[in-house]
Amino acid sequence: MLHYATRRLLGLTLVWAVALIVTFFAVRAVPGDPIMVMLSDHAGDAALEARLRADYGLDRPLPVQFLAYIGDVLNGTFGLSYRYVGSTVIDVIRDGMTITPLLALSALFIAVPLGLFFGVFAAVRAGSWADTGIILLLVTFISIPSFALAALLVWMLSLKLALLPVAGWGSPAQLVLPVTVLVVGPMAVIARLTRTYMLEVLDRDFVRTARAKGVRENRVIWRHALGNTMVPIVTSIGLIFGGLLSGAFVVETVFNIPGLGRIAIDSVLARDYPVTMSIVLLFTVFYSLINLCVDLIYAWLDPRIRFDEAAA
């Protein structure tokens, strides 16, 4: 198990190295000279231009710039922002780095239990009115785009009923709407998957065995049946987490939350490429780490998955 985790971590560093190379060259490949953008009115001031190029290290050959970039990533500054002259990238994104994972993880920790609950609830009542009602609701939740849902909730709960703040960040009340918007879609996806897998598992022989030995129905469902649907569900949770990270882009913009998503969008609009690419890098690392966790959870959920044999 430890052996497997180490092996996977080594594999991940390779993924991260590729991400590092791609982000570096992508910044250099985009059309437009950032120094000319910075100079704007002062264009033609050759002395200032040369000084700026030297400050940003853009006067050196590409391999040297690349090594410097690696150094910047390793020392945690991620280089200099083009937009906020004199600031490093880390200064620009530091506050956002705690906000977005907080949003995504809290949404995940709400969506998973709710999704499992509704999925199981519907599956054990398959074919009934309650089941049909839940399916309809879930399809609605999956179909509605998050920006539309956000607008609807703000209109209803903030404007009409004045229960919650319209936007902003800092108080617990300001967390409610953005997290709700983030939760709804993934929750519905998990619930639908859970229902499907549960219906399949409830027909399996070992569920009949559990009932035949007099196990209480609640335990049959939540322990024996749900326990055997967890591997595919956890797989999809890993994928859904990617959706939560990108969902944060929309939600942070709509609710004016200073998270990585909004900083990313602002930096794209302002052509602050070092910031954009650092955020891409961070999301890559975050997403790959979550999926590593998912793979490690497999072993714990299903004893048939033998990591050490796979490694041999």
Partner: peptide, 13 residues
């Protein structure tokens, strides 16, 4: 007791 011992036991317990 059932016909199929292979599938009649819970695989994750």
């Amino acid at each position: 007791i059932f016909q199929e011992p292979g599938t009649s036991l819970n695989p994750v317990q």
